[in-house]
Amino acid sequence: MAAILELKDVDAHYGGTQALFGVNCAVEAGAVTTLLGANGAGKTSTLRAICGMVRRTGEIRFDGHRIDGKSTEDIVRMGIAHVPEGRGTFTNLTVQENLDLAAHARRDRALVGEDAQRVFGYFPRLKERLRQQAGTLSGGEQQMLAIARSLMMRPRLMLLDEPSFGLAPLVVLEIFQIMQRINREDGVSIFLIEQNAAMALDLAHDAYLVETGRIVMSGKAADLRDDDAIRRTYLGH
């Protein structure tokens, strides 16, 4: 399998602070890869580096093409959807407008309606609230909207930053099932950051562990799940 996303020796800086130190990692095409790490380890920064939301150096390739010099707008237009930390809701726009916005740059207009139907299949609750201001949705509903927006972009790669943050356990389960379907049925590759390491490792094929801005472990998700150190620190048993 070829990698759809590849990072080589990537550093990232916020002003004077360096957040990533020579990160190397990859997402195989059609696979789910998860990135584990403690708070402040550099998970969000890794996704930001990919999307050009933070100053970065090193080599980043999407589908073989260099994207490390491109702007965020150009990167997402290539087919990378990023569900950011904090949901990125457009609070004063309606739910419908949030979804329209996500699809606005697409050239395959004919498929937008079909994708909307699929998204409403996943999140019927959003369909009932199309005219509501997105800022008045509950936290969980806004998280669904963030995922829905990314699906409306019909991406080939999804970057998800803690998609289950603040959701009730039942909804988390639902979101994980949806991610699995997106990956298996739609063939979308996924790079997942998740609080719930156990569920992330169950879903993922490959996994990385980041500590203070450096990748310190990588391998098959199943192998990391059985690793003693990982179990103690991230799985809590």
Binding site: E73, V76, A81, P84, F90, T91, L93, E97, L101
Partner: peptide
């Protein structure tokens, strides 16, 4: 209009708008 929507989005939440491909 789609352009009008993009302008409102860019004014409201520029970071998220650029993630939607809006040229902020």
């Amino acid at each position: 209009t789609s352009l009008g929507l993009c302008m409102r989005a860019a004014a409201q939440n520029p970071v998220s708008a650029s993630l939607m491909g809006v040229r902020v």
